[in-house]
C-alpha cells in the first residue's frame, strides 16, 4: 500500500492530552474529535491538515492515556500514517486496531522536515522524502499487524473470522 502526503512534524513525548484534550471526551463522535486534534499543541492543525497527510514525531509519540479518541481524531482529520522514532504502547496497539499504520524510523524522524512531501510504501517500510530526494527504511510491520491493516482494523478482522471465537458464558464464577 502506497501513501503520499505532506509532513506535519512534532517533537518528543507528545501525549494523548495534547493530541485530544480530555475536555472533549464527554462524547465520541469522530468528526467532533477531529476538529480538536492537536488543538493545544499546534493551533490550526485540524483545519490545515489534508486527507492523506503524514504525521512525523520524535520519541514516545502518544504517551499517556488509553483514549482511542487520540488515534481516531488523527485518522478522522485525514492523517494516513504516522512515522516516529518510537511510540507509546497503548497508542501503538490502538492505531493498528483502528487500521491506522505506524512506522518506526529514527533516521526518518530526524531528517524529514515539516512541510516535506513524503511517499510511504507500507509493505516494504520504505519512506521516500520527495522534497529532499532521500530514502529511509522503517522497521518492518509484524505480519499479524499487516493482517490487521489489510482487514481495516481489529473489528473487521474479527468479523472476517466470524463469531467463531465467541466463548459465550463458559466460566461460572
Amino acid at each position: 500500500m502506497i501513501l503520499e502526503g505532506r509532513i506535519w512534524k512534532f517533537g518528543s513525548d507528545v501525549d494523548t492530552d495534547a493530541i485530544i484534550p480530555a475536555r472533549y471526551l464527554n462524547q465520541s463522535d469522530p468528526k467532533e474529535l477531529a476538529k480538536h486534534a492537536m488543538e493545544d499543541e499546534r493551533p490550526g492543525f485540524s483545519t490545515a491538515v489534508k486527507e492523506g497527510d503524514i504525521l512525523l514525531a520524535e520519541k514516545n509519540f502518544g504517551c499517556g492515556s488509553s483514549r482511542e479518541h487520540a488515534p481516531i481524531a488523527l485518522k478522522e482529520s485525514g492523517i494516513s500514517c504516522i512515522i516516529a522514532r518510537s511510540f507509546a504502547r497503548i497508542f501503538f496497539r490502538n492505531s493498528f486496531n483502528l487500521g491506522l499504520p505506524l512506522l518506526e524510523s529514527p533516521e526518518a524522524s530526524e531528517a524529514i522536515k515539516d512541510g516535506d512531501r513524503v511517499r510511504v510504501d507500507l509493505s516494504t517500510g520504505e519512506i521516500f522524502d520527495l522534497t529532499q530526494n532521500r530514502k529511509f527504511f522503517a522497521k518492518p510491520i509484524p505480519p499479524f499487524m499487516q493482517e490487521l491493516l489489510r482487514d481495516g482494523g481489529l473489528i473487521p478482522h474479527l468479523q472476517k473470522k466470524g463469531g467463531k471465537r465467541n466463548h459465550r458464558v463458559t466460566q461460572k464464577s
Binding site: 483514549r67 482511542e68 496497539r93 490502538n94 499479524f144 482494523g153 474479527l158
Partner: peptide, 18 residues
C-alpha cells in the same frame, strides 16, 4: 494492562486479547 476501546470491545466478545 491498559488497552484501547477496540481491544475492550473485542475482549468483551471473545474473552481473549492479543
Amino acid at each position: 494492562t491498559g488497552a484501547g476501546s477496540t481491544d475492550l470491545g473485542a475482549a468483551m466478545a471473545t474473552g481473549r486479547l492479543w
